[in-house]
């Protein structure tokens, strides 16, 4: 068995194109997942029962089905009705799935804040909006950083599933290249290394953020 690593060099531009699509999927679905997750978390903590139940139902649904199924819904059902491109449907499917997990992470973060903080802010006559923004959420963020970041790393890797709806991101382009050059070992190893590089960057970012948000003692 002869390995020809030169095939990676020759395919490098295409691999980078694929990586770029992966990063786009990652960034947009992360944004959607975080914003929607924040909304769901606040709904879950709301005093209105309807909002709590809708949020609970959403999380149960999107954590109960595989991401692939959510992508199918986004692409074949919703996307076809509304006229979404594959990439847009991909972001929708990945983002709505991610939101269910982000919602739980954010909620856990907010709930981890000492009730005494709420009481102190209330006794200082601050409005709820003000103290959520200035006092509670910043402290919640600090608690959330580890789980938020490890879930974010997952979002990056899960972007590979978008290949199932025809999006040519890194995994997709690697499969195509592997089939046309018949050099799966070299090419998939290269793809694996690119993913490892990206996830390692995120791990470093996570450690930086954990230090940045730590309380000063």
């Amino acid at each position: 068995m002869e390995l020809d690593w030169g095939v990676v060099a020759r395919a490098w531009d295409l691999l980078i194109d694929g990586t770029w699509v992966t990063l786009q999927l990652f960034a947009w679905s992360l944004l959607l997942g975080t914003v929607l997750g924040l909304v769901l978390a606040l709904m879950r903590l709301s005093k209105y029962r309807v909002l709590r139940w809708v949020s609970l139902g959403y999380v149960w649904l999107f954590r109960g089905i595989p991401v692939l199924v959510a992508l199918f819904f986004a692409f074949f059902v919703f996307g076809r009705q509304v006229g979404l491109s594959a990439l847009q449907a991909g972001v929708l499917g990945l983002g709505t799935s991610a939101a269910a997990y982000k919602a739980e992470i954010i909620r856990a973060g907010i709930m981890s804040v000492d009730p005494g903080q709420f009481e102190a802010a209330e006794c200082l006559a601050m409005t709820r909006r003000r103290y959520m923004r200035r006092i509670i959420i910043p402290q919640g963020i600090r608690v959330m950083v580890p789980t938020y970041m490890s879930n974010t790393i997952l979002v990056l890797k899960v972007s590979s599933v978008a290949v199932a709806i025809g999006i040519v991101e890194l995994t997709g382009i690697t499969r195509q290249l592997s089939n046309s050059t018949n050099r799966p070992i070299e090419l998939f190893t290269a793809a694996a290394l690119i993913y490892l590089f990206l996830t390692t960057v995120l791990i470093v970012l996570q450690e930086f953020l954990e230090r940045r948000f730590a309380l000063k003692t």
Binding site: M1, S160, T171
Partner: peptide, 24 residues
């Protein structure tokens, strides 16, 4: 741990499906 958590599952599946036959 680093390897198998750092790489997407799909890459592992493709490796097993496409690459392993190359080594027999």
């Amino acid at each position: 741990s680093w390897l198998f958590r750092g790489v997407p599952l799909l890459i592992l599946l493709f490796y097993a499906f496409f690459a392993l036959p190359e080594v027999g």
